[in-house]
Design a protein around this nucleic acid. Structure first.
Length: 553
RNA sequence: UGACCCAUGGUGUAAUGGUAACACUACUGAUUUUGGUUCAGUCAUUUAUGGUUCGAAUCCAUAUGGGUCAACCA
C-alpha cells in the first residue's frame, strides 16, 4: 500500500532528465567545507542529495570543499564523516577539492591561453572600488590587457611562491560592466602562503570557490549539483567556466535552506558560541549541530523523518522546532524503555505496609508487546515528585492530596492520611495507607483512581544527575533582532539537577538505549557519565496537558 | 533605485488549466495503571488588481511584500 507522494521540484527535473534520456543514472554530491561541524540545516542537504540517489539510479559523493586552508581542519573532516554516517548514508567516493588542485591549475592555464584570464596586481581595496555596485558598472583594471605570455609567466611565478600574500590574483576576463556582479572579472586564484590540512605546503596559491566547486563537480561528472539559494547568481559563472573550459557540463540547481526557529544555523555564529563559551562545545546538547542533537538523544531516524516532512522548495521559510520535537517523540515513543526517576523528591511513608520490601514488575514499553518487563523494588518509604502532592488542590487535580487516592505506577493504590511539616511549616513527608488488594496486575479492589504517579523506593534509589535543556534562544529569529544575536541567548537553556532519584535498573544504562522517564520526558545517557556517576540528558519532554491546563487558569 | 529569486491556513509542503489538500500546531471529546500514546472531531489557506479562458492557486501584465548580489569566504 504505497501512498502516492508528490514530487518536489528537483525530483521532477530528475524524472524528466531520466525520461528523455539525458541521463541513465544521476550523480549528486554533498560538498561541505571542513571549517565547522554540520548542523540540522546540513541534514536537509544530506537527506536531499543522498535521498535522490536512493530513489533514482546513481550515487552520491562526499566532497570536501577545502580551498581555504586558513579556516579548514582535519578535525572537521572527521566530524563531518561521522555525522553523515550516523545519519545513515553511505557515499560512493570520498573526495576533496584539494585532490584536484593540479587539474585546477591546468584549467587556469587553459583560460589564460584562451585570453580569458589575467593576473591583476591591484590591491583588494582597489579592486573593490573598481568593482562598481549593483547599480553602477565597474571599471577595467589597468592590468586587464596584459599579454597571454605575460599572464602565463606571472601566474607560474605566483604558483612558485615568488610573491607575497595578497599581491596578485588571477581573474577571469569577462565583463566589468556585467549586470551580475559575479561576472565582473571574478577572482579565480589568490596567494596564500598557508599550510593546507591535506596538501601541506605544496601550494601557495588556492582557487576560489567559483573556480573549484563547479570544476570539481565537472571532474566527478556530477549531473545535478544541488546548492542553496544564495548561489543562484553564481550559476551564470558556473556555466561560463564550464563552457570556456569545455569540460563535463554539470548543472546547478538551488533550493531554499531550512531555517528553524529559536536557534541559529550559521557555522560562523555557531563557532562564536563555541569560542566564547556560551556552550560547552560543538556537541553541546543545546546546539543545533548533528553532534549536539546526537548527544541530546535525537535519533537518525527522527532527523531523517523531519527532513522528509519539511520537504524541499525555493521559498524562504522558518520551520517550527516543534515539528522536530514531534518527530523525535514519535520515534522515541516506539523505542524508549520506560523508567521511573524522581527529580524533586517528597517522602511518602506507607504506614500499613508491614513487609520489608517486595519486587514488582513493570513493562519496558507499553507500545512494544515483546519489550518485556523489569523488576522494581517497593518498600514502605518512597519518593514521589513534590509537584504530585498538594495540600489544597484545585478541582481536577488527579494527584495526591489529603484524603485523595492515586495509583503508584505498577504498584498499589495509596491514600493520603496525614501531612507532616517541619518547624518552618514546609511539608516534610506525607503519610499514606496502601490498599493491599490493589496490586498491579492482580487488582481486586474495584477502586478506580484518576491519577497514576511515578515513584522510587527510598532505600533502593540510585542517584543520577539530570540535565534539562530548553531552547538556546529566547526569540524565534535571533538574527533578525536588533543588536548582537548573542544578546538573545536563553539564560535558562540548561538546568542541572545534580541529584535525582532513579530506579535501580538504570544503574546499567547504556549510551545506546533511549529512556522515557515516565511522566517526565525522553532521556539518554550522556558521554560524561562514569561508573557511579550517572548523567542523563533530556532529549525532549512529553506533551503535558496538565501544564497547559494550569497555565490557562 | 539595477538585476535575479520567491509569494497557498499560525508553520511546512501539495494540488502540474477542472471540487484547494496533507502533516505539525491549537482547540473539543473518547480511551488510558504515563494528564504520555491511541482514536474521533473542530477552527483555519491561494498577497492585490486587471487580463486570457467555458473554467485560474496554476498562464500573462502591473503593483505590493520578502529575500539575494558590491569577501583575495564557501
Amino acid at each position: 500500500m504505497s501512498e502516492e507522494r508528490s514530487l518536489n521540484f528537483l525530483e521532477e527535473i530528475i524524472e524528466e532528465d531520466l525520461k528523455n534520456g539525458k541521463y541513465k543514472s544521476i550523480v549528486t554530491r554533498f560538498p561541505p567545507e571542513p571549517n565547522g561541524y554540520l548542523h540540522i540545516g546540513h541534514a536537509s542537504s544530506i537527506c536531499l542529495n543522498f535521498g535522490l540517489t536512493q530513489k533514482y539510479p546513481g550515487y552520491t559523493n562526499l566532497r570536501f570543499d577545502d580551498t581555504n586552508p586558513v579556516t579548514e581542519e582535519t578535525e572537521y573532516v572527521e566530524s563531518i564523516k561521522e555525522d553523515v554516517k550516523w545519519l545513515g548514508f553511505e557515499w560512493k567516493h570520498e573526495r576533496f577539492a584539494s585532490d584536484y588542485f593540479d587539474t585546477l591549475y591546468e584549467y587556469a592555464l587553459k583560460l589564460i591561453d584562451k585570453g580569458l584570464a589575467y593576473v591583476d596586481d591591484s590591491t583588494a581595496e582597489e579592486m573593490a572600488v573598481m568593482k562598481g555596485s549593483p547599480t553602477e558598472p565597474g571599471k577595467d583594471s589597468i592590468y586587464r590587457d596584459r599579454t597571454i605570455a605575460e599572464n602565463r609567466d606571472l601566474f607560474v611565478r605566483m604558483k612558485n611562491g615568488e610573491y607575497p600574500d595578497g599581491s596578485r590574483t588571477l581573474r577571469a576576463k569577462i565583463d566589468m560592466a556585467h549586470i551580475n556582479m559575479l561576472m565582473r572579472d571574478p577572482i579565480l586564484y589568490r596567494i596564500k602562503h598557508a599550510h593546507h590540512h591535506r596538501t601541506g605546503d605544496k601550494w601557495c596559491i588556492y582557487p576560489m570557490y567559483d573556480f573549484a566547486h563547479g570544476q570539481s563537480d565537472s571532474i566527478e561528472e556530477i549531473t545535478h549539483s544541488i546548492c542553496t539559494l544564495e548561489f543562484v547568481p553564481h550559476r551564470e559563472l558556473y556555466d561560463w567556466l564550464i563552457e570556456k573550459l569545455e569540460i563535463y557540463p554539470s548543472r546547478q540547481y538551488e533550493f531554499a535552506r531550512r531555517n528553524i526557529n529559536y536557534t541559529v544555523t550559521s557555522k560562523r555564529k555557531l563557532l562564536q558560541l563555541v569560542n566564547e563559551n556560551h556552550v560547552t562545545g560543538w556537541d553541546d546538547p543545546r546546539m543545533p549541530t548533528i553532534s549536539g542533537l546526537r548527544r541530546r538523544g535525537y535519533t537518525p531516524d527522527s532527523i531523517r523523518e523531519f527532513c522528509d516532512r519539511i520537504g524541499v522548495a525555493k521559498r524562504e521559510n522558518m520551520v517550527d522546532v516543534g515539528l522536530l520535537e514531534f518527530c523525535v517523540r514519535e520515534h522515541l515513543n516506539r523505542i524508549a524503555l520506560r523508567r521511573m526517576v524522581v527529580f524533586d523528591p517528597l517522602k511518602v511513608v506507607i504506614t500499613n505496609y508491614t513487609g520489608e520490601e517486595e519486587i514488582l514488575h513493570s513493562e519496558n514499553n507499553p507500545e512494544d508487546e515483546k519489550g518485556g518487563t523489569r523488576e522494581i523494588p517497593f518498600s514502605a518509604e518512597l519518593y514521589i515528585e513534590k509537584e504530585d502532592f498538594m495540600e489544597n488542590p484545585p478541582k481536577k487535580y488527579f494527584r495526591l492530596a489529603p484524603g485523595q487516592m492515586v495509583r503508584l505506577k505498577s504498584a498499589y493504590i495509596i491514600k493520603c492520611d496525614e501531612v507532616i511539616k517541619d518547624a518552618a511549616g514546609t511539608i516534610a513527608e506525607v503519610r499514606c495507607t496502601y490498599i493491599p488488594e490493589s496490586k498491579s496486575g492482580s487488582d481486586t479492589s474495584g477502586i478506580n483512581v484518576k491519577g497514576t504517579l511515578h515513584w522510587v523506593s527510598v532505600k533502593h534509589a540510585i542517584n543520577a544527575e539530570v540535565r534539562l535543556y530548553d531552547r538556546l534562544f529566547k526569540v524565534e529569529d535571533p538574527t533578525d533582532e536588533e543588536g548582537d544575536f548573542k544578546e538573545y541567548l536563553n539564560p535558562g537553556s540548561l538546568e542541572i539537577l545534580s541529584t535525582a532519584y532513579a530506579e535501580p535498573v538504570l544503574k546499567n544504562a547504556t549510551l545506546e538505549e533511549r529512556y522515557q522517564f515516565i511522566r517526565k520526558g525522553y532521556f539518554v545517557l550522556d558521554k560524561e557519565s562514569a561508573p557511579g556517576k550517572l548523567v542523563f540528558n533530556k532529549t525532549v519532554g512529553l506533551k503535558d496537558a496538565w501544564a497547559k491546563e494550569v497555565k490557562k487558569s
